[in-house]
């Protein structure tokens, strides 16, 4: 079969688009196109990436304006068809604002922009985004955000846990959930969640910044590889 086609969506203020494009094209060896947020048709693509950055300068709330861009209709349509959608950092914030993922992302409890490596524990590897990881595996990935504190009202949080929708949690290097390992105050240490259907994934850490050995961690690469392999198995 041919290559898996990734769309890398670009909003005004997106700034991780080139990193995502590079990883898909050069490290993963699949196809990638930049798609400007005014485009509506994402049907030619198998996978859609909403990269990080500061879409619309984070005005009003992070992701609040970007969710209204025409491209989000396309994202919604393709997600309904079962295509894979991943939102990284600001992309995650856009997905929750758009209602494609549940919950909200609030200011970090220490009111600081956090730019550092953290440890993450893989909670569920039975998904198109994580099947190349082991359950309980501890990853090292960078975060870079001011508004990454995952919040959900208690009933929603319970259903996320019950449905195994939490894919990644902040942990210490041994995989233990310790308060000091939770960088932003996220409820239940949540760093990444998937929708009920399992094809829309949002996470605050940046896998595209740790997909090659030269970047001191390759732990993010298997997210992209998982997506591509999973898509190939469907085609």
């Amino acid at each position: 079969m041919g290559k898996v086609k990734f769309a890398v969506v670009v909003f005004p203020g997106t700034n991780c688009d080139m990193d995502c494009y590079y990883v898909v094209k050069e490290v993963l060896g699949e196809e990638a196109d930049y798609v400007w947020h005014r485009e509506e048709d994402l049907s030619p693509y198998h996978c859609i990436i909403l990269p990080g950055g500061f879409s619309y300068g984070d005005y009003l709330r992070t992701g609040a304006i970007a969710k209204l861009s025409p491209v989000m209709e396309g994202v919604r349509r393709e997600a309904e068809k079962g295509k894979l959608v991943i939102g990284i950092c600001n992309g995650f914030q856009i997905l929750v604002e758009a209602g494609l993922l549940p919950g909200a992302l609030l200011k970090n409890t220490n009111l600081r922009f956090l730019c550092k490596f953290v440890h993450l524990r893989v909670e569920n590897n039975q998904t198109p985004f994580t099947h190349l990881y082991k359950e309980g595996e501890v990853l090292r990935m960078p975060i870079a955000h001011y508004e990454g504190r995952y919040f959900a009202p208690p009933p929603l949080l319970q259903s996320l846990e019950k449905n195994k929708q939490v894919l990644l949690r902040y942990s210490d290097p041994e995989g233990k959930l310790k308060e000091e390992a939770n960088p932003n105050g996220s409820l239940n240490f949540i760093a990444g969640i998937v929708n009920e259907k399992g094809n829309v994934f949002g996470l605050m850490p940046h896998p595209e910044r740790c997909s090659e050995e030269v970047l001191s961690s390759e732990d993010g690469f298997r997210i992209f590889k998982s997506m591509a392999d999973w898509m190939k198995a469907q085609l």
């Binding site: 009003l60 609040a64 304006i65 209204l68 549940p102 909200a104």
Partner: peptide, 8 residues
């Protein structure tokens, strides 16, 4: 639809 986030 935009000005507030009804979740929070």
């Amino acid at each position: 639809r935009m000005l507030a986030n009804p979740v929070v």
